[in-house]
């Protein structure tokens, strides 16, 4: 039964403006606001071993490999990433990792897999592969790695990335 006003005409309720509150919320993937290390899924053990070797080389500096806790966090996130990517794309990504593990060392004249090489040799092998016709494989692997690595606030601080906005938001200073 519609409500009516004093004139007998139906009272029209102004519809709320479209906006974020208009949708009923339901459970959804929760953002990882804390930077805890995810427990390993146990699904991608070989791929994750190569990933760790790759990441140690990619993010090493004159001071040595990256901090272990941040690397552990990164590997946990990448483990989840590969799982979310599904069997085909995740599988191709893992295939790229395994191929790189054996092909990259060939560029520096050794048959020893990437994960068994010292970090300096890994850097040289990946650098050479990056300048070869197989560069697209390295790019594909490192894109997801870098996107995840630079999600970490410590990594952002190291490159002076601040995020932020042009204008104040909800009264806060930008």
């Amino acid at each position: 039964m519609p409500q009516t006003g004093t004139s007998g005409t139906p009272l029209t309720t102004p519809s709320p403006p479209p906006g974020r509150n208009a949708l009923t919320t339901r459970p959804a993937p929760a953002p990882a606001l804390t930077f805890h290390v995810r427990p390993p899924s146990g699904r991608h053990r070989i791929a994750l071993r190569v990933l760790r070797a790759f990441c140690e080389a990619l993010f090493s500096t004159r001071d040595g490999p990256p901090p272990k806790d941040r690397l552990d966090w990164l590997i946990g996130e990448l483990d989840d990433y590969i799982t979310c990517a599904g069997w085909r794309s995740g599988g191709i990504y893992k295939l790229g990792l395994v191929a790189t593990n054996f092909i990259a060392p060939l560029f520096i004249g050794t048959l020893v897999p990437l994960w068994s090489l010292p970090i300096e040799a890994r850097v040289r092998a990946l650098t050479k592969m990056e300048h070869s016709p197989l560069a697209v494989v390295v790019l594909g692997l490192r894109t997801i790695i870098c996107i995840t690595w630079y999600d970490h606030p410590d990594s952002q601080r190291e490159i002076c990335y601040t995020g932020g906005t042009l204008l104040p938001v909800d009264g806060a200073q930008a």
């Binding site: 894109t143 870098c146 630079y150």
Partner: peptide
């Protein structure tokens, strides 16, 4: 920054140097 860093060549110290230019 992760996308920018990924698309610049360089591994190890070379990568770190380029990332600091972002």
């Amino acid at each position: 920054p992760g996308v920018l860093a990924a698309t610049m060549p360089g591994v190890g110290e070379e990568h770190a140097r380029r990332a600091r230019e972002i």
